[in-house]
Simulated scan of single mutants.
Amino acid sequence: MALLHKAHITPTKLELLAAWLPARPWYAGDGPLTRVAAARFDDPAGEVGVETLLVRAGEGPVLHVPVTYRGAPLDGAEEHLIGVTEHSVLGKRWVYDGTADPVYVSTLVEVIRTAGNEAVEEFEVDGGRVSREVDLKLTGSGAEVAPATEITGHRDGDPTVISTATVTLNVNRVPLIVVDPADKGVLSACWTGQETPAVLVHLR
């Protein structure tokens, strides 16, 4: 379960991404950046926000951008910092490219290997909790691999390749629409206008 806060964020996620994305080698599109869909994963320790964002620049392709939100800088990850934002409830938050954050990677591998899904999202309202409908459905296929705990290599691109001691992950920056239903070791996604599952991540 992901507990969210009704808050003001300055600059916004899209403003941070609009400044960061054009320098990426896999960026495509021309025009204002818009949100397509998003969903969260749970950090078991409850310290790091883990979100999968799908965005589009103008009429360009849908882009897959995993991000993490931290209450303090991540050691050794300066080159993967998207930006710093001010959250009206949580204070200053450091926003990172999730593919270079070990919490995102370990959580992602766990979702894939256990055939998991996106987290349930809830808001606190008048002392109670209210669920929010998620517009991005994420599904792990299941895979017989060990958990991942540490990133040993990272190569940006499409796909972005993440190496760990146990597995290698190919993160498709442009989701792959052609899916083999028998394929194992994948994270697939559906969203409005894309009811056929598209592959966001391959685990090798």
Rank of each mutant, 00 (worst) to 15 (best):
L3D: 02
L4A: 11
L4F: 03
H5S: 04
K6T: 05
A7D: 03
K13S: 01
A18V: 08
A19C: 09
L21F: 05
L21N: 04
P22G: 00
A23L: 05
A23M: 07
A23D: 15
P25F: 09
G29V: 03
G29S: 06
D30T: 10
D30M: 06
G31I: 07
P32W: 06
L33S: 03
L33Y: 11
T34A: 15
V36D: 06
A38M: 03
F41N: 00
D43A: 06
P44T: 05
A45F: 10
A45V: 02
G46P: 02
G46K: 06
G46A: 09
G46D: 01
V48A: 01
V50S: 02
L53M: 11
V55Y: 06
G58M: 11
G58S: 14
G58Y: 15
E59H: 11
G60Y: 07
L63K: 02
T68R: 04
G71Y: 08
L74I: 01
L74V: 07
D75K: 12
D75V: 14
G76Q: 08
E78S: 14
I82P: 03
V84F: 01
V84T: 13
E86D: 14
S88T: 05
V89E: 00
G91L: 00
G91P: 01
W94S: 01
W94H: 14
V95I: 14
T99P: 01
A100P: 07
D101Y: 10
D101M: 09
P102G: 01
Y104G: 00
Y104W: 15
Y104Q: 10
V105D: 02
S106R: 13
L108H: 05
I112W: 11
I112V: 14
R113I: 03
R113G: 04
T114L: 11
A115Q: 12
G116W: 08
N117V: 13
V120F: 08
V120L: 12
E122C: 12
E122L: 15
F123H: 11
D126K: 15
G128M: 10
R129W: 14
V130Y: 07
S131G: 12
E133N: 10
V134A: 13
K137T: 12
L138V: 02
T139G: 03
G140S: 07
G142R: 09
G142N: 12
E144K: 11
V145I: 08
P147L: 06
P147R: 09
P147G: 08
P147M: 09
A148D: 05
T149P: 02
E150V: 09
E150S: 13
I151H: 00
T152D: 02
G153F: 10
G153D: 15
G153M: 11
H154R: 09
G157T: 08
D158R: 06
D158T: 05
T160E: 11
I162G: 00
S163A: 12
T164F: 04
T168N: 06
V171K: 01
N172A: 13
V174R: 11
P175Q: 04
D180T: 08
P181D: 12
A182C: 09
A182D: 15
V186P: 00
V186A: 01
L187R: 08
L187T: 07
L187H: 07
S188R: 15
A189P: 01
C190G: 04
W191I: 02
W191L: 06
Q194P: 05
E195S: 13
T196K: 10
V199L: 08
V201F: 10
V201K: 04
H202Q: 13
H202F: 08
L203Q: 15
